[in-house]
Design a protein around this nucleic acid. Structure first.
Lengths: 204, 204
DNA sequence: AATAACACTGTTCATATTATCAGTAGTCAT
DNA sequence: ATGACTACTGATAATATGAACAGTGTTATT
């Protein structure tokens, strides 16, 4: 049972999460005040007390950076857009493509997704990604070799495993029925990185 | 590129991970010394410097608890046994059942697995668990409703979703071809909790 | 209209924490 | 046998940080 947060409190909670994600440690009162634009550290203190009272964090008293995010802190839903078919040349996040939004618990995935993409086709079936699955994607225009990426080739968007060589990139399907796609490194457009998968067997 | 750690340094790294897992924050030098049994805080400092130099952590200077675990820190492998067929009545971790061990990166899963179990059968196929998959299991004799568990019924070990009612438990398969199994709560033996899945398409 | 909760500014003080210096020993490679 | 790294003890100084107190307005609820 945790009461609802005010908008400002939610912002502070997000701020703490982001700081932790960036630096690997929880922020101090001063650092929260800095990021949030407060003139006084005590503004941050007040918010922390509120967040603790409402059950989102635990404060370890007299401990530096003693802010512990509780499970609740991660279960504040964020509405993510589901992107379906993507029109040629249109940025993937264009509002026209948004079918609907679904609440996704933050922290469900290690990397925070930017949007959800409904998988079409079975080219990644051996990687456990089925037709109709929702994959969580973090928007990014770079990726490392071995990562599963959302890439654009000739106005078409696909999900494949990225393999980077010296001068070229290969998009690897995970299905024997499909062939790898070799692309010159400078022609490859990465849309995002696969950071998680959501399968709801009752969604059909 | 990160050089190898000494046994002691590995222990200190484990100590930091555990502390962070317990409290949600990185330990101070004093707390490391305390947990490790050092008389001097500087022993911890020395180890931290070594761990940073070898690329396992990042130290944020002049910052309290400014220890950031880098990816490398999680990639220190732990050898986990793979349990295959389980003889009737024999504890699941009995050495006779160990087929082989594989290095599993710690921190790959949020919950640290105790052993790996090779899935036999397709009763959980709708949950994305296929025949031949390795599932990472955390040994536990209790579980919450809704969790996927490794349970023993009549000398047979199965993987199912656990559904707890008032007085009885139901083991739910994720495959229409199989029927749910109802078990009196006091007869159910939980072996462990499903904490992750490893699928290697090249392992066949 | 009163009260509580929210959302801050600004200051002071105690203490938590890091950094650094000075040692002691053991191991390991050149 | 010499230097580099490991693995510590012990102490002190500098700074980072949390806690507390005294205020000011605003907004939501009864």
């Amino acid at each position: 049972m945790s009461s609802k947060l005010t908008e400002r409190q939610q912002q502070v909670l997000d701020c703490i999460r982001e700081f932790q994600s960036d630096t690997g440690m929880a922020p101090t009162r001063a650092e929260i005040a800095d990021r949030m634009g407060f003139q006084s550290k005590n503004a941050a203190s007040d918010h922390l007390r509120a967040l603790e009272r409402k059950g989102y964090i635990k404060l370890h008293s007299d401990r530096s950076r003693g802010i512990q995010l509780l499970d609740n802190a991660y279960w504040s839903d964020e509405e993510l857009p589901i992107v379906g078919k993507v029109a040629a040349g249109v940025p993937i996040e264009a509002i026209e493509n948004v079918e609907r939004t679904v609440p996704v618990p933050q922290g469900l995935f290690k990397q925070r997704p930017t949007y959800l993409l409904k998988v079409q086709g079975d080219s990644m079936i051996d990687a456990g990604i089925f037709d109709g699955d929702l994959i969580a994607v973090r928007k990014s225009n770079v990726a490392r070799s071995g990562e599963i990426v959302v890439a654009r080739i000739d106005e078409e968007v696909t999900v494949k495993t990225l393999r980077l060589n010296k001068s070229s990139a290969t998009l690897l399907p995970a299905n024997e029925a499909y062939e790898p796609i070799k692309v010159p490194a400078d022609q490859l457009v990465i849309e995002g990185i696969f950071v998680g998968l959501i399968r709801d067997p009752n969604s059909f």
